[in-house]
Design a protein around this nucleic acid. Structure first.
Lengths: 215, 215
DNA sequence: CAACGACGGTACGGTTGCGTCCCGACGTGT
DNA sequence: ACACGTCGGGACGCAACCGTACCGTCGTTG
């Protein structure tokens, strides 16, 4: 019988966590530096100070390596937000997103992978799970609560709301790569809130012509 | 004297436009299919049914090739918009952007190049000229006119306005790659307009709790 | 009509990365 | 204390691509 129990790997015959960690870190840096397209296992191993075999023992292919690590890194980043007001929720969410995208690694890796997702179904699938679905969920909850509070119209489309919430911030941080100030975030909160259908926080100041003063 | 005038290239010794065109088309397809990172001159030439030399005679490097062609393709795409109302301008702009991004080539190439721009200064520079500057200009004009009409507050920040205008649409089309309907575009116009500070088109319907309706 | 000269295509060496195989090293469990 | 079994590392053959040099072809110009 060869079905007897094999001895469990032990001692030196077990994966060393430090090396796994080094590979993870090297992958992130390499991904940010050259992008998914040019990413090579060889370069990752080189940067990690590790042999290629060390990588192949852990992940069997480039896409598997990237997906596992990226998915893990993207988990547990969004706060449970419930501040009691739409604007509070938005401000908190924006802070979290801005914080995450300020990491140079994230701000380079995420757009790169999102672009790659357009042609790689496996990446697309993973990103939809760890990013899109999460956003839809968080955005959906945010909208739902605001509707229940009466801050937003009952027929607010959560789908469109998510676009309006995440779009401008993503554009500015990841695409335009323009600086962000607290003032800007404050303005954005107000814009998005009113854009979604909330009452303006303050009576709208008008420009040269002031139709609201006619009442 | 060797400074005499050389005979101008003529006959077979002149670049054949058909081949240049074939290379341009092949580049676009290749760029959409594998992305800038994996793009190889060899594959472009192969797809164009042309020799590598034909490519190298016209462009000396990969980045030059991509930049020249992409910059050319991005020119003259945005309409001169002045419909007389903020919402009209927005609707027209959205239609144009949506139309452009519906092209499969554009919707794959643009995010890819934008991601690449984060690590390639030459690409960044070019894209800023052909995309960002243009958007800022168009968006700035749109906002300025709306302010003059009294549709928007005088202190509207054109910079933030551009983010709010382009962000959601870009997100949905290029990143989320969700379908777009005329209804959606209409909702988006209204959201962005009010988000920018315009008066709502219709009195805001409130949800379950309606503090404004208690009067 | 003949010479010109850049054309497009092939062939080439060099570089890089892939995925695999083999080897000595090493820490644990018997 | 020894045998076990996986570890990490280096080496290998293979494939793709880069950028260049060369070569015969072809239309125009004098």
């Amino acid at each position: 019988m060869t079905t007897e129990k094999r001895r469990a790997p032990a001692g030196a015959a077990v994966l060393r966590g430090e090396i796994t960690t080094a590979i993870r870190r090297a992958l992130m840096q390499e991904l940010a530096e050259v992008g998914y397209g040019r990413l090579s296992i060889e370069a990752v191993a080189r940067r990690a100070g590790v042999s290629k075999t060390a990588v192949y023992r852990r992940w069997s292919s480039k896409v598997e390596l990237v997906l596992e690590i990226v998915a893990a890194a993207a988990h547990g980043k969004l706060p449970v937000l419930d501040t009691g007001t739409l604007r509070g929720d938005l401000a908190l969410l924006f802070q979290a997103v801005a914080h995450a995208l300020r990491h140079p690694l994230a701000s380079q890796i995420i757009p790169d992978l999102l672009a790659e997702a357009a042609r790689n179904p496996a990446i697309d699938e993973t990103l939809r799970q760890v990013l899109h679905a999460r956003q839809q969920e968080v955005g959906g909850r945010l909208v739902t609560r605001a509707v229940q509070r009466g801050e937003l119209p009952a027929d607010t489309d959560p789908d469109a709301a998510v676009d309006l919430i995440i779009g401008p911030l993503y554009w500015r941080l990841a695409i335009a790569r323009a600086p962000i100030t607290d003032t800007y975030l404050g303005t954005l909160v107000e814009s998005v809130a009113t854009g979604l259908g909330a009452e303006p926080a303050v009576p709208r100041p008008r420009g040269a012509v002031a139709p609201s003063a006619h009442a």
